[in-house]
Amino acid sequence: MYDVRTATPVDLEAVIALVARLQQDPAHRIAFHGETAREVAEELAEIEPRWPDCAVVAVDQGGRLRGTLTVEVDTGQRRAYLYGPYVDVPANHPAAGNLWQATADAMLTHAHRLPALAGVRTLELFGHRENRLLADFAGRHGIAARMTTRCFTLTAAPLRSLLVRHSPDDRVVPLPPEPAVRAAVAQLHDRCFPGAPTTGAQLVAGERHSVVVLVGENGLLGYAGGYTQAEEYYVDVVGVTEDARSCGVGRSLVRRLLGELAARDGVRDRAAALIRAGNDPSERMFTKLGFVLSEELVSYQADLAAAVAHRPAS
């Protein structure tokens, strides 16, 4: 068993290296994190509250880092996201299950004591479908599988072609300052994505997302929001009013959004979007833009009190 403690700034370099290495294996992959050291470093730098105040590590007797768990907290929604647990043991190791789960349990127990989790009501995990260790961990802690999400990506030449060769629809523009348009976007977002991590008010506030809109004669037809990460453009949300669907509005919004991100943040070699399994219209829209399915992810969610109640005794 490893020594589990709150992280310190000295641990950061080793944490980034460990996470980036384990992210290469679907059997360990956590969907909240990127897959390179640069992406992981960028994500940890943006964590709220400040890393390492919201992080836990597991170290062996020699002081070597063997596991980590970071918690991001949305205080407004009283929701916590687990970036992990990560335990440095091969998924096919004979003792992987016992060692991984014992270390993961100890890190979660320690994380529950962090001041950052005070008042949190909802706990969320998000990992690759092949991460069975995470699935077993979630099940033992009463954190139920909520939905399957499919990741679609557009890379290299196809992405450059979309950005360069397709003339943008001049009806699609960056989110204007008019309060009426912003209110309409917020309302449409909350209607299309109830309970999403980003609320409509947060989306139009522009703290993280770039947003583009298409407004017709009778009002808002649709919007798209996303942001640039270390290695990719991320299309986070696309919402289209019911009477404007299946008319190419969504594709126009995504093209313009990617163009805006490229102009503002420079060249990236990949764009990505997550689509809930069963959302066939969205899958068709992204497929027509050239995106291809790259992996399937599973999200898990629980009331924090229920998760604590199911936590194995230490």
Score class of each variant (00 low, 15 high):
residue 136 D to Q: 11
residue 217 E to W: 07
residue 249 V to E: 03
residue 282 S to V: 07
residue 255 R to E: 06
residue 163 L to P: 02
residue 80 A to P: 01
residue 59 V to A: 12
residue 117 L to A: 08
residue 24 Q to G: 11
residue 157 A to L: 07
residue 81 Y to I: 08
residue 67 G to R: 03
residue 136 D to I: 13
residue 300 Y to C: 06
residue 243 D to G: 03
residue 198 T to W: 13
residue 31 A to D: 09
residue 154 L to Q: 02
residue 287 T to I: 04
residue 117 L to C: 10
residue 264 R to W: 00
residue 314 S to E: 13
residue 214 L to G: 08
residue 279 N to Y: 10
residue 173 V to L: 06
residue 211 V to D: 03
residue 95 A to I: 12
residue 248 G to L: 00
residue 109 T to A: 15
residue 257 L to I: 04
residue 70 T to P: 00
residue 101 Q to R: 15
residue 155 T to F: 00
residue 241 T to D: 11
residue 118 A to T: 13
residue 131 N to C: 03
residue 151 C to H: 09
residue 281 P to T: 10
residue 282 S to F: 05
residue 204 V to C: 10
residue 250 G to D: 03
residue 111 A to C: 03
residue 11 D to T: 09
residue 241 T to R: 12
residue 79 R to H: 10
residue 33 H to D: 14
residue 250 G to V: 02
residue 1 M to P: 12
residue 210 S to M: 12
residue 144 A to P: 04
residue 103 T to A: 13
residue 30 I to W: 05
residue 304 L to M: 15
residue 48 E to A: 14
residue 217 E to I: 05
residue 12 L to I: 04
residue 143 I to W: 02
residue 166 H to Y: 10
residue 244 A to S: 10
residue 164 V to A: 12
residue 273 A to R: 11
residue 246 S to Y: 09
residue 274 L to T: 07
residue 206 G to D: 05
residue 84 G to E: 09
residue 293 L to W: 00
residue 286 F to D: 05
residue 143 I to A: 02
residue 110 H to V: 10
residue 212 V to M: 06
residue 152 F to T: 02
residue 196 A to I: 01
residue 87 V to I: 09
residue 308 V to M: 14
residue 6 T to Y: 04
residue 192 C to A: 15
residue 175 L to M: 04
residue 138 A to R: 01
residue 189 H to G: 04
residue 235 V to N: 03
residue 243 D to T: 09
residue 219 G to E: 09
residue 104 A to L: 08
residue 272 A to L: 11
residue 40 V to S: 06
residue 304 L to R: 13
residue 53 D to F: 03
residue 193 F to Q: 02
residue 83 Y to A: 06
residue 92 N to L: 14
residue 65 L to Y: 03
residue 254 V to L: 02
residue 174 P to H: 01
residue 148 T to I: 06
residue 256 R to I: 00
residue 196 A to Y: 11
residue 23 Q to E: 07
residue 251 R to I: 02
residue 192 C to T: 13
residue 253 L to P: 12
residue 45 A to K: 09
residue 148 T to A: 10
residue 225 G to R: 01
residue 187 Q to A: 15
residue 243 D to C: 03
residue 239 G to K: 11
residue 120 V to N: 08
residue 26 P to H: 09
residue 262 A to P: 03
residue 52 P to L: 07
residue 132 R to T: 13
residue 2 Y to A: 15
residue 133 L to T: 01
residue 105 D to Y: 13
residue 312 P to C: 05
residue 164 V to P: 04
residue 295 E to Y: 09
residue 284 R to M: 11
residue 39 E to T: 07
residue 236 D to L: 13
residue 101 Q to C: 05
residue 75 T to R: 15
residue 188 L to C: 01
residue 199 T to V: 09
residue 237 V to G: 01
residue 56 V to A: 08
residue 305 A to K: 11
residue 304 L to N: 10
residue 57 V to F: 00
residue 54 C to E: 05
residue 206 G to M: 01
residue 197 P to S: 01
residue 85 P to R: 06
residue 271 A to V: 00
residue 211 V to C: 08
residue 292 V to D: 15
residue 25 D to G: 02
residue 117 L to D: 10
residue 215 V to G: 05
residue 98 N to F: 10
residue 121 R to H: 14
